[in-house]
């Protein structure tokens, strides 16, 4: 049975090749990010060393220190938290209840409206940004955190509605009917039974809405002007827009604004990847 042995050997070679390719792919994916961290830990004289090297010779936190004490990043971080917090809260409240209605009730226009929510997630931000600018200008909301939070609601509302509609679909109607039989009002039934059941899913939805506000650049770039409302993506972009860029500080700032994103996404990775498949997720 030489051929079976041969086949097994071929299989082993093939598996090794697969590992090699995947390792290479993971390296290509992650090396740019490793370079960000490496640069952020280098003192000024090592950053432009020729030839460049990966491991800092004298690793230092001085870039982080200067970003945290002398730059606009801490202020922008706070702005981003507030803007993201307001828009996520409103999106969960309004989009969550709309998603519930789409899932539970039959009403005229239901299908059309829910498709509109799906398609709204694909609107170009460069198209929304111009009317938003004039609308907010008319009511004095330019360069305010509230103004940006409201604009971000245009992104997160459809997202939350569509995602939560899917989650509510997964809860059997019988559970709700039983609760109503036991004398619960609709609000009691929602707050005591449905929402606790969906806690992880709704948390994932909220985190997703928050991150899309945290990362958003195009609209914030137009609606904000000063440090009173500029969010982290804009603050980071300012770092690398100078004629002489301080790459050490820039990469430290990039790391600082990425860490919260990675932490929260790791918490909801499972729900998140499942959501991908149902077409509910925008990058």
């Amino acid at each position: 049975m030489g051929s079976r042995k041969m086949k097994r050997r071929l299989d082993k070679v093939w598996t090794a090749v697969v590992y090699l390719i995947l390792t290479l792919a993971a390296a290509v994916t992650l090396l740019p990010l490793a370079w960000v961290i490496s640069t952020s830990l280098k003192p000024g004289n090592e950053i432009f060393a020729n030839p460049p090297y990966w491991i800092p010779k004298v690793p230092t936190l001085e870039n982080y220190l200067s970003v945290l004490t002398e730059s606009s990043i801490p202020g922008a971080f706070l702005n981003s938290l507030i803007v993201g917090g307001i828009s996520t809260f409103l999106a969960l409240l309004l989009g969550g209840s709309a998603g519930y209605a789409f899932s539970r009730f039959r009403f005229r226009g239901r299908k059309g409206l829910s498709l509109f929510m799906l398609i709204s997630q694909m609107l170009p931000l460069t198209v929304l940004m111009i009317p938003m600018y004039y609308m907010e200008n008319a009511v004095g909301l330019i360069d305010t955190k509230l103004g940006l939070a409201i604009a971000h609601l245009a992104i997160s509302m459809p997202l939350v509605t569509w995602m939560s509609k899917g989650y509510f679909n997964g809860i059997p109607k019988e559970i709700e009917e039983a609760a109503v039989m036991d004398g619960c009002t609709t609000l009691q039934m929602l707050s005591r039974i449905v929402i606790p059941l969906l806690k992880p899913a709704l948390a994932a939805t909220g985190i997703y809405a928050f991150i899309s506000s945290w990362n958003e650049f195009a609209i914030a770039n137009v609606l904000t002007r000063s440090t009173t409302s500029r969010t982290v993506p804009l603050a980071l972009n300012e770092f690398s827009s100078f004629y002489r860029v301080d790459w050490g500080d820039t990469m430290a700032a990039a790391t600082i604004i990425t860490i919260p994103v990675i932490i929260v996404f790791m918490l909801v990775q499972k729900q998140f990847v499942e959501g991908l498949a149902s077409g509910a997720v925008k990058g």
Partner: peptide
């Protein structure tokens, strides 16, 4: 492990990706 690593690269804020590559 592979999937998580590649997933991490996907969720990085767009501005960070752009800035990192500007530097590269």
């Amino acid at each position: 492990v592979f999937r998580s690593l590649i997933f991490v690269a996907w969720i990085i804020p767009g501005v960070v990706k752009a800035t990192a590559w500007k530097w590269l």
